[in-house]
C-alpha cells in the first residue's frame, strides 16, 4: 500500500487535554502531523478536528480506531483529497512602497485571488484562501518583492459525502446508540470480507 495524503475529521467534545490525547496517538507511532486544525462544528458544543497526514490507508484506518477509542471522541472519519473540499488560508506581508511603485504586484495579487487585510505606511498584508499549490506559488511570485513575513493556516475540509453531524449526534445521545453511531465498515464490504 502506498502512502498518500489523508484528511482525518474528528468530532469531539470540547475538553481540555483532548488535543494532547489525539496528538500523542500520532507521535507515539512516529507519524508526522502535516496540519492540524480545531474548530467548532455545525453542531453546538461539538468540536471538530481536521488532521492531515501522509500515510497508507491501513495505518490511517487503525489511527482512526485509536482516535475513536478516546472517551471524548464521538467519531473519526478519514478521506482522500478527492473526497473532500479543502482550503488553507495564507497571509503575506510585503513592503507597501513596493506595492505602490510596482503596479505589476497588485495585478499579480489579484490574479492569485488575494485580498488586502491591512494597509499601513510601511507594510501591507494580503490573504489568500486556497490549496497548498496556489498559496505556495504566490510565495515564489512575491519573493522578488521582499516578502517580509509569510504564514499559512492548517487545512480545513468539508467532506463531500457528509450529511453533517446533527443526526448522528442524536444517536450518540441515546443510551443504546443506533447502528449508525457504530458504523462497521466491514458490513458494507460484505463480499470483500467474507471470502469463504
Amino acid at each position: 500500500m502506498t502512502k498518500q495524503e489523508y484528511t482525518i475529521t474528528v468530532y469531539t467534545e470540547n475538553q481540555i487535554g483532548l488535543l494532547n490525547r489525539i496528538a500523542i496517538i500520532f507521535s507515539r507511532r512516529k507519524i508526522n502531523i502535516e496540519s492540524l486544525n480545531t474548530s467548532p462544528s455545525e453542531v453546538d458544543s461539538v468540536h471538530r478536528f481536521t488532521i492531515v497526514i501522509n500515510e497508507t490507508e491501513d495505518v490511517v484506518r487503525k489511527l482512526c480506531r485509536q482516535i475513536e477509542k478516546q472517551v471524548e471522541v464521538l467519531k473519526a472519519y478519514y478521506n482522500t483529497n478527492d473526497e473532500i473540499v479543502w482550503q488553507e488560508l495564507a497571509m503575506y506581508k510585503v513592503p507597501t512602497e513596493v506595492i505602490a511603485s510596482a503596479v505589476k504586484v497588485e495585478r499579480l495579487l489579484r490574479e492569485h485571488g488575494a485580498h488586502t487585510v491591512v494597509i499601513r505606511k510601511d507594510y501591507t498584508v494580503f490573504a489568500v484562501a486556497g490549496q497548498r499549490e496556489e498559496t505556495d506559488k504566490l510565495i515564489k511570485v512575491l519573493e522578488p518583492y521582499r516578502l517580509i513575513e509569510f504564514v499559512r493556516s492548517a487545512r480545513i475540509a468539508i467532506i463531500k459525502a457528509s450529511d453533517g453531524f446533527h443526526e448522528k449526534l442524536k444517536e450518540f445521545e441515546y443510551r443504546e446508540p443506533g447502528e449508525d453511531a457504530i458504523e462497521n465498515e466491514f458490513l458494507n464490504e460484505n463480499e470483500k470480507v467474507f471470502s469463504m
Binding site: L169, E173, E176, P177, I182
Partner: peptide, 9 residues
C-alpha cells in the same frame, strides 16, 4: 456518556 461507547452493538 454520549461520546463513549463501551460496547459495540
Amino acid at each position: 456518556i454520549r461520546s463513549y461507547r463501551p460496547k459495540p452493538i
